[in-house]
């Protein structure tokens, strides 16, 4: 049942003579096919955690077990092969794609690199991926810069599912989208999870987004994981100051006259 388990992960950065502990002794688990929402303010360490998980940076200490393997000691061709199983979707999708890429190359590269389908079947698979994220087949020839922000995020999701991963890390993946598009993308992600049993690590400072998609929520503050539990419990009965601050910060739509509206002081 446990897909990923992180134990006692620590990481510090030093810059300009200052020493910053980005992660302090963080432990958490993610179950098969479930979503862990990772909440926290800027600088709380959420992105550092995501980067270590992606093997983009090494930790100072701690272990990560993924699909019953020691994820941090994998190297070389073994690591390259296994990378297909953890994919990532970034906030700034345009920055995450080669600016000269076309939709076909963005989706074709992972299929080729990880030999997901035989070469002859690649065009068909690309169209199937586009269709799955709600985009027409005619998009294959477009440049990645010619599509709207919401469509680009759909393409990033198609790229992430292309390698048939068991875990996808979303780092503020919907924060830059307009609200109407954001809702549709979240619905798509929930559908994909139910259909394919992919687990998600959903990193965001927006608890309203995490509440929509998460089974469990973990709250980080200043590099420490200070609270975690089933999503409804963390939202309804937060135990830490950081969780309470995140909850209070979610803007409420004030439709009726009220004396205690959040921002009215």
């Amino acid at each position: 049942m446990t897909l990923l388990s992180i134990e006692n992960l620590s990481k510090h950065f030093s810059s300009g003579g200052r020493d910053i502990a980005a992660l302090k002794d963080v432990s958490l688990t993610i179950a098969d096919g479930k979503t862990l929402g990772l909440a926290g303010a800027s600088g709380s360490g959420k992105s550092t955690l995501a980067r270590i998980l992606m093997r983009l940076i090494p930790p100072d200490a701690g272990t990560v077990r993924f699909e019953d393997e020691d994820w941090l000691t994998l190297s070389g061709s073994e690591l390259r092969r296994r990378r297909a199983k953890i994919q990532m979707v970034f906030q700034d999708v345009l920055g995450a794609f080669n600016p000269r890429a076309t939709v076909a190359s963005v989706l074709g590269d992972p299929l080729r690199i990880h030999a997901i389908v035989p070469k002859a079947e690649r065009p068909k698979e690309i169209v199937a991926l586009l269709d799955r994220v709600g985009l027409p087949a005619s998009y294959v020839a477009r440049s990645i810069r010619e599509v709207s922000g919401g469509q680009r995020q759909r393409i990033a999701i198609a790229r992430a599912i292309a390698t048939r991963p068991s875990l996808i890390v979303f780092d503020e993946a919907v924060s830059a989208l307009d609200v109407s598009i954001r809702g549709k993308i979240l619905e798509l992600l929930v559908e994909l999870q139910e259909e394919r049993g992919i687990a998600y690590l959903f990193v965001s400072h927006d608890l309203a987004v995490l509440r929509a998609v998460s089974h469990r929520i973990a709250v980080m503050d200043a590099g420490r994981l200070i609270e975690s539990g089933p999503a409804d419990q963390v939202i309804e009965n937060p135990q830490s100051q950081a969780a309470r601050a995140l909850i209070a910060a979610v803007p409420r739509l004030v439709i009726k006259p009220t004396r205690d509206s959040v921002h009215d002081t």
């Binding site: 809702g183 929930v190 139910e194 929509a212 089974h215 939202i235 439709i255």
Partner: peptide, 19 residues
């Protein structure tokens, strides 16, 4: 716009509330 707004009282998109 009002209907697309999502806050903590909006019901979650996932089916089961907790694992």
């Amino acid at each position: 716009l009002i209907a697309s707004h999502r806050d903590l009282s909006t019901s979650p998109l996932i089916k089961e509330p907790a694992s």
